[in-house]
Write a protein that binds this DNA or RNA. Structure first.
Lengths: 256, 256
DNA sequence: TTGCTCCTCACGTCACGTGAGGTGGC
DNA sequence: TTGCTCCTCACGTCACGTGAGGTGGC
């Protein structure tokens, strides 16, 4: 440590023996070392310490630096607290059902997406309620895009429940990127905004997706976040013939 | 980030274009990336993540790793909390008396010291009470060591108040290192054990040392530590003729 | 022809810790 | 002669970020 401080000029020995190179320090050095160690202990880096120790800062500036440190530490503490909550949420998830793998849950801000979509009402959530609506809407949108000469991207769905009666409005369609598409009364172009989500990549058929949602929602709650809307689904790889190979990204909007 | 993960083999592209070197990833990669990001967010390093993601760990081991992370984060939080308290103690010290520089306070464990000492009773703390006792004891010990052919090191003092009546027992003498000294009834060889202290390097005469002690004790209290004894003083550089150049290390034993 | 995206090195970050190989004075 | 302490390089740490300089396909 002393060699390092010598090298960067933060604390140089009083005297260096010419023949042997041995470093000798005096009491003045000890006082300086104490200041360096004290400031390091507060979490300042060596550049900041050099400024404080060399320039004999006025009290006002020193106070300012201490306030900055204080704020920074409080910030770090909050970050680590949130992290701890997430770790503990995983532990609780493991206890609830040991076979479920929750290690894929990622917090992120989505990219904004532009889709061409149609929408329809389903009697409720769940595969058996939603599937018929999907089966009706997706070919409709696909045909529309084909007719317009637009190449469809991945398919996307999002949900809505304006009526509070258990029914769900399902919106689904295809990403269109920067291709221009005219809306008609069935197919509309919608920009899904960037939002904060907890996301999971799900592999296989959608039949068992509900238990994944359950675990995801529990995890969000355990971690101290709050749901702020209904889910978005991105069908990253889809084939009706080989559902075991399907890959879906499930996104739950969250706040806090 | 993806280039880095490719390089260390944590996440390699499905396909690399031979001509251009462009990396292409498939949906399987996306699932893997999600797991990597999720684990990274919990604070695991890339080596640990590689193990979890590659070896499909049994639930028991995964639980173990999460518990370790949990314990580590709790530890970090405690450390940072203590650091925050120390920063805030400095801020409060600045507010109390802006001219006082408290930036030298260092927490450390002392090295054990062997001294040859004599002791005497003073009517109380404070320069005027202690000085006559020092003036009597130190020459006595010095003469004893000289007669024994022992080279004295720096002088040291420590305190004791067995009688709870305001009087203080002052122990003072010289470091003797590994030189052997016989004790008599006035001069004894004492090993001062290693203890945890808050230490300050004080420059100048001892007249104004009391205010330094006051600030030190306040700081210790503000930082959430507890005094666990009376002080030790190391006279690192001493001359009665030129007290402005004197350098003293003041050590207060603390716990917690 | 010009942008654009992605590529490959190579170096920097922060505060030291850790060898490898060497040396003066007891 | 042998330990001992201290010395000087030089490299490693951890997870990328940041240029510099270059390239294939629209």
């Amino acid at each position: 440590m002393l060699r390092h401080y010598d090298e960067i000029g933060l604390l140089q020995p009083d005297r260096v023996d010419e023949a042997t190179g041995y470093r000798s320090y005096g009491v003045a050095q000890l006082a300086r070392l104490h200041r360096v160690l004290a400031l390091r202990d507060l979490g300042f880096n060596l550049e900041q310490i050099r400024v404080v120790v060399d320039d004999e800062l006025p009290v006002e500036q020193l106070r300012g630096m201490l306030r900055m440190r204080q704020a920074q530490i409080e910030d770090d503490l909050a970050t680590e607290h949130a992290r701890l909550a997430r770790v503990e949420a995983h532990l609780r998830a493991l206890e609830r059902n040991p076979q479920m793998i929750t290690q894929h849950i990622v917090l992120k801000t989505t990219d904004p997406v532009r889709i061409a979509e149609a929408s329809g009402v389903a009697p409720g959530f769940g595969h058996e309620n939603l599937n018929p609506v999907f089966a009706q809407l997706l070919p409709e949108v696909l045909a529309y895009l084909e007719a317009a000469g637009v190449r469809p991207g991945i398919s996307v769905a999002w949900y809505d429940d304006p009526d509070d009666d258990g029914t769900v409005v399902l919106h689904t369609g295809f990403e269109i990127g920067d291709q221009t598409v005219r809306s008609d009364d069935r197919v509309r172009v919608v920009d899904l905004p960037a939002i904060d989500v907890a996301a999971v990549v799900h592999r296989g058929p959608m039949d068992d997706v509900e238990s994944v949602y359950e675990a995801l929602i529990q995890w969000i709650d355990d971690s101290g976040y709050h749901l702020s809307g209904l889910s978005r689904e991105l069908y990253l790889q889809w084939s009706d013939d080989n559902p075991a190979e399907n890959v879906t990204e499930l996104q739950m909007p969250i706040t806090k």
